[in-house]
Amino acid sequence: MEENKVGVMKPQKVLSIKNLVKYFGKRKILKDISFDVFQGDVICIIGASGSGKSTMLRCINQLEMLTSGEIIYDGRNVVAERDNLTQYRTKVGMVFQQFNLFNNMTVLENCMVGLVKVLKQDKAVARRTALHFLEKVGMAQYINAKPHQLSGGQKQRVAIARALAIQPQVLLMDEPTSALDTQMVGEVLAVMRSLAKEGLTMLIVTHEIAFARDVASRIIYVEDGVIVEDNTSEDIFNHPRDARTKAFLSRVTNSN
């Protein structure tokens, strides 16, 4: 795996989403979404509830099947090649709003299971990797705990470690702090911040506008299933081009 040095080399294109369309029944949720993700990008996807942000993320990971469109990873359209789906998913990690930890496993087992079962690693090796990432999110002490014994923030940090353990190239985060109370939001955001600093490529659907402003290298503003604006964080917040972006930002920043 190559070192990720943002700015030294021209960043490599990791994911390419082309003309993504998604219907739920007759309702068109996503209308022709296209964008590229480059190595080291920290992209925050913002927008009102129901605008299709989460669906977009779930489509990228193929948890939702696209109605049409392409997702290009490593030069291949992963939508067409269903056989390689599990392999592709090990390259694109996902963190969920509801954590979704495996309740029958301890914290350590949660982080190891992907390595042992999917990547067929030796248990000792998997254990070390899992411990490394649990340490990174500050949960290494809790390896023997079961998910139901942890607080929300702790669960989400374990979920992040679980996703990181399989060492994906891109991490998708679907409103990772929305199910947490304010005190716990801080600890999860801190972890995400440090990951961003390390250069991990992330796609984050979030309502934490202040966090997005702080951490994101790029912001994608979604409204009614279309990308209204896709620009650097600096430009979106200081010089939004589209009137809709402007309206949204003034709405959320005022209410904060």
Binding site: R89, Q98, N100, N103, A159
Partner: peptide, 17 residues
């Protein structure tokens, strides 16, 4: 809950796993 199934899929597990 379906969430755990999704999480399992998201780390690359197949249906059997």
């Amino acid at each position: 809950d379906v969430g755990q199934q999704e999480a399992a899929k998201a780390i690359g597990m197949n249906h059997f796993q």
